[in-house]
Design a protein around this nucleic acid. Structure first.
Length: 291
DNA sequence: ATCCAGGCCCGAT
DNA sequence: ATCGGGCATGGA
């Protein structure tokens, strides 16, 4: 890959295993907006990014090399060699090959802890468009103004200090429904010190156990946060869709979530999270297109 | 209209 | 340990 600064834009050339649509639309993040084919506004880490991809060239508009090195490089998981991961998964399991061929450009993001936790608490029993709307409404109400594009203003997800001043009723007004007290408990735990740093010394199992202490956080949400924010790439969130695709692909019959997670650990090992996301997005997108 | 959505809590077995 | 009902809200 080559990095080139051109006027105010940063241009990445010869980028491998990167498809901005796959990355953003695969269900791992919610704070972004599609503005055109292969062109998006992404909000993360108190920044707004206008990004566009043409073939293997990725343009980060109005972005400095410093921003890339400090934020976006890690956010987009650019230090990880996805060719190795895909080869490992494919050689280990021929049944995952179609999913990887279809969604070849997925990268698992490294998202902010507070935002990821609250977003996936909200995600329970909701569809992705509505999750996106609520995350955006929370950002608009409590976050900082970051800039605008084509008449739309973008706001950061609020930091802890601001979240602490929000009430349960605030979140109910933001249409989080029965999840409002769950969000309050998450904020409470954060106030008591729960943060990204908490997990530096914790194993995957310990990390999940820690998050399960939060009311409204179960195995699925905890695994999503472990995978999409905390870097535990062996995490394997099992929701109704993953359950279905795993049953169809590997079991041929109804199987409990526990058994599926056990199987995934054996089959995919340290790469469970990647395998899960290839399967999930491949199946969801196929279903959306056919129906 | 009825059903379901990237679930989880809670009470009953 | 496991199962089913209930839960706010919105879209199909």
């Amino acid at each position: 890959m080559r990095i080139q600064q051109k006027n105010d834009d940063l241009i990445l050339q010869n980028v491998k295993d990167f498809n901005i649509e796959h990355i953003l639309e695969c269900g791992q993040c919610f704070n972004f907006e599609k503005i055109d084919n292969m062109e998006y506004i992404v909000v993360a880490y108190e920044k707004m990014l206008h990004i566009k991809q043409e073939e293997d060239t990725v343009i980060l508009f109005n972005t400095s090399l410093d921003d890339y090195e400090c934020v976006w490089k890690h956010y987009f998981d650019m230090d990880v060699d996805y060719e190795t991961i895909k080869q490992f998964l494919k050689q280990n399991d021929e049944k995952i090959v179609p999913a990887i061929e279809d969604k070849w450009g997925i990268r698992i993001l490294n998202q902010e802890f507070n935002e990821t936790l609250i977003s996936f608490i909200i995600s329970q029993n909701k569809q992705i468009p509505h999750i996106k709307k609520i995350v955006r409404d929370i950002s608009r109400k409590f976050g900082n103004e970051l800039g605008e594009y084509e008449g739309n203003t973008y706001y950061s997800f609020p930091d802890l200090q601001v979240l602490q001043n929000a009430s349960e009723d605030d979140f109910r007004q933001l249409k989080t429904g029965f999840r409002a007290p769950y969000i309050m408990d998450a904020i409470c735990k954060m106030s008591e010190g729960l943060s990204r740093d908490t997990f530096d010394a914790l194993s995957y199992e310990e990390a999940v156990k820690e998050m399960l202490k939060i009311k409204g956080v179960g195995e699925k949400v905890a695994n999503c946060v472990a995978l999409f924010s905390l870097g535990y790439r062996n995490a394997f969130p099992v929701d109704v869709w993953v359950k279905r695709v795993m049953e169809d692909t590997y079991f041929g019959k109804e199987t409990s979530k526990e058994e599926i997670m056990k199987f995934a650990k054996l089959k995919f090992g340290e790469y469970g999270g990647y395998a899960q996301q290839y399967h999930f997005y491949h199946m969801r997108d196929k279903k959306n297109r056919n129906l």
